[in-house]
Structures are given as C-alpha cells and as structure tokens.
Amino acid sequence: MKIALYGQKIEYKNIIYINQFLIYVFNHSIDIYVEKSFFKKLLYFKEFHKIKLYVFSKYEELKNCDIMFTFGGDGTILSAITLIQDLGIPIVGVNTGNLGFLATFSKDVFIKNMDNIFSKKLYLMPRSLLQLETSINNTNLFFNFALNEIVIFRNETVSMITIDVFIDNEFLTSYWSDGLIISTPTGSTGYSLSCGGPIISPENKNFVLTPISPHNLFSRPLVISDCKKIHLKVHSRVKYYSLSMDTRLISLIKENELYIKKAPFYIYIYQEGKNTYYKTLREKLLWGADKRN
C-alpha cells in the first residue's frame, strides 16, 4: 500500500499523534510519501530525524497512491486537493485545527480507527467541485477547480460592482453588490452561510448563488441544479476585480468573463459513518442548541 501525508503547520502538542500514526504505518510495512514542505517542518522535531520517509511535491508523484492523510483543518484539505486533483485518492482529514467540517476525525478518534481506515471499512463521501473557465486566458489559474466556492468581489474600491448572471445562456439578473458567491453543497456551510445562504447536505446535486451585501432588497440566495452552466460578466469602476477559489486569490481584468460548471470528477473524503454530516452540524454549528434542550 502507498499513502501520502500532508499538512501546513505543526504544533508540538500534535507530535504525539503524528508519531503514533507513523509507527503504525511502519509496523504494517506501508510506504508513506510526505509532501515536501510538510516534510521540512517535520524535521524541526527530533522525534522524526531517524524515520525514513519518501517525499513528493507534485501531482504526478501521487499516482497509484491509495489514501492521503491530512493533519490540520478544513483549509489543509482545500490545499491538498490542488495536489490530488482528479486522481480520485480518498482523503482522511485529522482535525488539529478549529472547526473541522471536512476534517471530521478528532485526533483520538483517528488513532483508534486506524485499523478500520486502512481496511477501508469507513464511509466514503464523494464531494462535487466547481470548474472555472475564463474568456481571457490567465496563467495564474494553476488549478481551476474549487471544492467549497468561487467568489467574485470588488477590488481596490469601496464602490459596489455589478455582476450579470446567465444560467444556461438565459439571463437571470444583475447583482449590484460587493460580490457573488457560487458554492457547492460542501461550501454551503462556509462563506455562503455567513452571507445568508442555505445549508445543503453534500449528497444533493446543487449549486448556490449567494450575493454579498446586495443593495437590492429582493436579492436572495438562489439554489440551482449542478447540471446548469453559469456565465458571469463583471462591471466595475476600476480595472480589476478579485476572484477566489477556495484558498486561492487572484485579480482579473473586468473584461474577463467567467464560465462555471460542475467539474467532471469528485473529491472523496472518509467519514466515521454515513450520518456524520448531521452530527457535525449539531456539534460544530450548535444546530438546535437551546438551554431548553
């Protein structure tokens, strides 16, 4: 078996869990490849100086990998998918961060479940992505897919921007706002939720369009089928507007139109069980929390 390990930072309190994980891996003769930058961070700690680890740094080196393990929060998983891309490698997210919507395994639960994880006895949840194309080629779009959301918002101005929206080539409306969020069900509990968007469970086949601080009182979030294609035209008083895709941010010239659709592949994330999502809503968002309960 070949597995990958990825993280963005390490706190000393988490060393014991990584160490237990590596001991398990070596005791079971599993080949482990560590992302190059994370490998350098591991070397700061003497516990890992004598451990022989393989290193990877790009997409091509992950082929034939069976599982990727991430140590961090949801942002770590969002960063990891830029390496996995369309390889179909399932992710086990160990939550050493704060919220942990995607990284659903607490450190203690992860250690206890390693036998089940490596025997693939847990629930595997497919997550849909957004794919972006632009009318003007932009070399900075090194990975034009998003697991959570694509966001268009104003750049270097306090003035609102206007975003013309077309669904399957049919004009929908013009949003006069600070920006617009196009979210997957996975991203519905993120930025979209903070702007008044609905929560959508991951198995649903939808996108959500959520305006950011719209000036029109009738502008509300809209749920559409993920088989629809979205076309956006941006109008601004300044030359550029900002575009974010999960954790990646760039500026585009306002003449650059956007075309968004469902990606042709999924990201797969391991969970403890099929109903983990609703448990996560209760625990992380305090869903239904009330002193009367």
Results as ranks from 00 to 15, higher is better:
1 M>E: 12
2 K>D: 11
2 K>L: 07
4 A>Y: 09
6 Y>R: 04
9 K>S: 15
10 I>H: 00
10 I>S: 08
11 E>H: 02
14 N>Q: 03
16 I>M: 04
19 N>A: 04
19 N>Y: 15
22 L>A: 12
23 I>C: 13
24 Y>L: 11
29 S>G: 00
32 I>G: 13
33 Y>Q: 03
33 Y>L: 13
34 V>P: 05
36 K>P: 04
39 F>K: 13
40 K>R: 13
42 L>P: 12
45 F>N: 01
49 H>R: 12
52 K>V: 11
53 L>G: 02
57 S>Q: 11
60 E>W: 04
60 E>S: 14
62 L>E: 05
63 K>P: 01
64 N>Y: 04
68 M>H: 09
68 M>G: 13
70 T>Q: 08
72 G>F: 03
78 L>M: 07
80 A>K: 03
82 T>W: 06
86 D>A: 06
87 L>Q: 03
90 P>F: 14
93 G>Q: 10
95 N>F: 00
95 N>I: 05
99 L>Y: 02
102 L>F: 09
106 S>C: 02
107 K>W: 01
107 K>P: 01
110 F>D: 08
110 F>G: 10
112 K>E: 14
112 K>M: 07
112 K>V: 02
114 M>A: 07
115 D>R: 11
115 D>P: 04
118 F>S: 12
120 K>V: 11
123 Y>V: 14
128 S>L: 10
131 Q>L: 11
135 S>Y: 05
135 S>W: 01
138 N>S: 11
138 N>F: 12
139 T>A: 03
141 L>T: 11
142 F>P: 00
143 F>A: 09
145 F>S: 05
146 A>Q: 05
146 A>V: 06
146 A>T: 09
148 N>C: 08
148 N>A: 07
149 E>Q: 03
149 E>W: 02
152 I>S: 07
153 F>M: 12
155 N>E: 14
157 T>A: 08
157 T>Y: 02
157 T>V: 08
159 S>Q: 14
159 S>K: 15
160 M>F: 13
162 T>M: 14
162 T>R: 15
165 V>D: 05
165 V>C: 12
165 V>F: 04
167 I>R: 07
168 D>W: 07
181 I>G: 06
184 T>F: 06
185 P>R: 04
187 G>D: 02
189 T>N: 04
190 G>C: 05
192 S>C: 03
195 C>R: 00
196 G>M: 01
197 G>K: 00
199 I>Q: 04
200 I>Y: 06
201 S>G: 02
202 P>C: 12
205 K>R: 15
205 K>A: 12
206 N>V: 12
206 N>R: 10
207 F>C: 04
208 V>L: 06
209 L>A: 03
212 I>Y: 07
213 S>Q: 09
218 F>M: 14
219 S>F: 07
221 P>W: 02
221 P>Q: 04
225 S>E: 10
226 D>H: 12
227 C>V: 14
230 I>Q: 05
230 I>L: 15
239 K>D: 06
240 Y>M: 14
241 Y>W: 07
241 Y>S: 05
241 Y>E: 03
243 L>C: 07
243 L>W: 10
244 S>Y: 02
245 M>C: 03
250 I>Y: 00
257 E>L: 01
257 E>A: 13
258 L>C: 09
259 Y>Q: 08
260 I>F: 08
263 A>M: 09
264 P>N: 15
266 Y>N: 15
269 I>Q: 14
272 E>M: 13
273 G>C: 13
274 K>Y: 14
278 Y>F: 15
282 R>E: 06
287 W>T: 01
289 A>V: 01
290 D>V: 01
291 K>M: 01
292 R>W: 02
293 N>T: 10
